[in-house]
């Protein structure tokens, strides 16, 4: 029973992280239908920005957090403006390969500047965030993750529901042509959604860095884990991303606990193929996939 509970809690917390990492991916897909293979590298860039502000510039934690997020926001705008806008209307393979090329560039750049070593942030979280229930011990980092994640979810929920820009973004996601004819500045919405998605990715990267340490190979591997998560949850559903993440996290942990640790990395992809064959729009996605 102890073992079961440990696995359950471990799976939930990993799954929550997957969900958090997948949020930015879903946001980009929802507004501009781009499948972003550079997502893991965007996570890594956020984590390394934070690292640079904290350890090199020695700025206070909160200030460096905000600066790192601002830098990611800018990077998102730059990527959309320079690289993706010329590709609007081009075939899918070009858009996919552009993000693949971008991923290689970012990864090379990070390795060039920091190398492939594991970095850790200075310990700054208050101990009070940790929780101990009987045998289940939740370390402070997971408490902090839960709080940061929930805050961001609520903030973005409010943003999409009430702010005018958020409503524009939803309208573009819903029907691009109709939004265009009603006077929504679709290009600005694309730029904004890349900026926000890069910001969310940067935030997730920082959280992952706090928990596992910062390493570009690990973080870009999580960028590929995002695919089963978002397909399970539905490619265009942010809530689905969180739930998909939790399911995949639980699945991974139970497989490695009860079956075989080596199966852990392949099970999400087996699930991915099954979902694609049986229910390709996922649990919460829009059922508008064209069948041929």
């Amino acid at each position: 029973m102890d073992f079961f509970v440990q696995i359950l809690v471990g799976g939930l917390s990993i799954g929550f992280l997957y969900g958090l990492s997948a949020m930015g991916f879903v946001m980009i897909f929802k507004s501009s239908s781009v499948l972003n293979f550079a997502h893991g590298e965007l996570l890594a860039i956020g984590a390394y920005f934070f690292l640079a502000f904290v350890t090199w510039a020695k700025l206070p934690i909160l200030l460096s957090f905000l600066l790192a997020l601002a830098a990611c926001f800018l990077l998102g705008i730059i990527i959309e403006r320079i690289l993706l806008r010329p590709l609007i209307g081009e075939p899918l393979i070009f858009v996919i390969m552009l993000t693949v090329g971008l991923a290689a560039m970012f990864k090379g750049l990070i390795l060039l500047l920091w190398g492939g070593n594991l970095f850790t942030y200075p310990d700054f979280l208050p101990k009070a965030l940790g929780v101990q229930w009987g045998i289940v011990r939740i370390p402070p980092v997971y408490g902090a993750t839960l709080i940061i994640g929930t805050v961001f979810l609520v903030l973005f929920g409010l943003f999409f529901k009430f702010s005018s820009q958020g409503i524009y973004m939803r309208s573009v996601a819903d029907n691009q042509r109709a939004a265009l004819s009603l006077g929504v500045h679709v290009k600005r919405v694309f730029a904004l959604s890349w900026a926000i998605a890069a910001l969310v990715a940067g935030m997730s990267g920082i959280v992952l860095g706090i928990i596992n340490g910062v390493n570009v190979h690990d973080l870009s591997a999580i960028g590929l884990k995002v695919f089963p998560v978002v397909i399970l949850g539905g490619l265009d559903s942010i809530g689905g991303a969180i739930i998909g993440g939790i399911i995949i996290g639980l699945l991974e942990n139970f497989t490695s606990g009860y079956l075989s640790p080596s199966l852990r990395d392949v099970v999400p992809y087996v699930v991915l193929v099954l979902i694609l064959l049986l229910k390709p729009y996922g649990l919460f996605g829009l059922k508008e996939i064209e069948r041929v």
Binding site: L83, P86, L87, E90, F94, M97, L98, V100, G101, L102, A103, A104, M105, F106, K107, G108, L109, I110, L111, L112, G115
Partner: peptide, 22 residues
């Protein structure tokens, strides 16, 4: 360590070809 430069240039080649001569 400039070995990662290879990865960077590989990515750059893909991006430039897609943007300039698809």
């Amino acid at each position: 360590n400039i070995a990662p430069l290879r990865e960077f240039v590989f990515g750059l080649a893909i991006v430039l070809f897609i943007l300039l001569e698809p």
